[in-house]
Write a protein that binds this DNA or RNA. Structure first.
Lengths: 253, 253
DNA sequence: AACTGCTGTGTACGATATAGACAGTTTTCG
DNA sequence: CGAAAACTGTCTATATCGTACACAGCAGTT
């Protein structure tokens, strides 16, 4: 009678992700497992992107009916959340003796590398604060690096999330530029072209500041060869600014 | 015969958004307009979220057939991009005399306020660098504030994007927490509960750093009353760190 | 007056997520 | 030992969407 959800109960995704579901006592041994389902989803996403990940595709790859998946996973959204978490490699081990700054640098770069390795992860909308195992593992490493610092606990959390957001945001930008480089015409065009377009479209009287800056950036890009390099440079610039800001705050305390 | 897309041609979305499409020379006067379509989409999203925005709903609200929209908009994705851009208010006018730091502070807070006013904007995946008019207008204001500073042009661009990313990321977190506060049980639970869960789930042996920090943050939250406040505090902390980092970099130059 | 290019409509198709009933299997309880 | 209970995977069905395609009527051009 009581369909009231127990407020103390684990949300289903978390229960599955943290393997808090006791094995069934009765009934046939499940031949499908969550791990297999998630693995198949990851494989498909690796090969063809998340748009190719449908319940039917995942089930088909494993030799099952689409509906079989719903015995192990509550919804497609849940499956995608699990796939996203599974897509990450284990966080790097950081040299604690080297200090917090090199540690966080390495951590953030590793995160960006993870996004680069599986860009489809960026297509899955994030839902809530990090709570799946792999994400928590990454968070743990960042917090561990900050352990000797004068930062307050909530400041450490903020710092880690800030760097994580930075890695994610810039990875999305890099992915978008790469995508538009490939597909001609449909999206905004390749890196420099997109900038050039905006620089031309922005009327100097209405948007006086944007034009000069973009033209200058364009000139700088054309002086160099590669423009994938430039995106990486912007990533580094932002990373160093954030670390500078944390450093300044620590010195003040 | 030549279906080759002209590399110099505007991508269709941009042509529409910047009103670079010449009015048709022949044929009946269009009764539908892009502005009306986008406006209807925004209204529906305001009332029921983006999930409620379907081509049929938008067309229906205007008294047209779904397919009529495709005469003015290339795809649903394009429509959403336009709606996202239209959803933003005009950027605030900033006091140039006050200096770059107060200016960027106000700018970033205004951006966060815009996300708060229309949270559904965050559900639309961003595609590429800012290139639609309202987004460019916002970017222009941030760059204008940085005009007197020793930052190089590409550094100014980086700084603006960094702050924009910060506003967006934290707005998403705030929205997620608010969402889970409302819906009981289905998603991850309300703000503090989510943290508590992770704190319990993270085994101390595998994730030694996460537990203490989360418990400390939880205690701090429970000492105060509201936890919406805390998210705002984290936003401010990150904002100040980024500005500190920019400040340090400027002094060095 | 014929033609051309345009607008909005109607129909149709192909995906897709997922609800609900069912048959078969394994364990537990009387 | 047999009946009931709990669970797995399947099958069928539905509702929702985005959008391709062909068409009817309209407004300028030739």
């Amino acid at each position: 009678m009581t369909d009231e959800p127990d407020p103390e109960a684990l949300p289903p995704v978390l229960a599955v992700a943290w393997q808090r579901t006791p094995p069934p006592a009765r009934g046939p041994r499940p031949s499908l497992t969550v791990a297999a389902i998630v693995g198949a989803a990851v494989e498909i996403a690796d090969e063809e992107g998340i748009d190719a990940v449908s319940m039917a595709r995942v089930a088909g790859r494993l030799g099952y009916t689409p509906m079989a998946l719903y015995r192990h996973v509550r919804s497609k959204d849940d499956l995608l959340a699990l796939a996203q978490d599974a897509a990450f490699a284990d966080p790097p081990t950081l040299d604690a003796a080297a200090g917090w700054r090199p540690g966080l640098e390495a951590w953030t770069r590793a995160l960006a590398a993870a996004y680069r390795a599986r860009p489809w992860v960026l297509d899955i909308p994030i839902a809530g604060p990090p709570s799946l195992p792999r994400q928590v593992a990454w968070l743990d490493r960042a917090l561990a690096v900050l352990e000797g610092t004068p930062l307050l606990p909530h400041e450490r959390l903020s710092a880690a999330l800030m760097l994580s957001n930075h890695a994610r945001s810039w990875s999305m930008l890099a992915r978008d530029l790469e995508r538009s480089r490939g597909s001609t015409g449909t999206g905004p065009p390749a890196g420099t072209d997109a900038l050039r377009l905006v620089a031309e479209l922005a009327a100097p009287d209405r948007f006086p500041a944007v034009g000069p800056v973009l033209r200058d950036v364009l000139a700088a890009i054309e002086a160099g060869d590669d423009d994938g390099e430039d995106v990486a440079d912007e990533f580094e610039f932002g990373l160093q600014r954030i670390l500078d800001g944390l450093d300044a705050h620590m010195r003040r305390a």
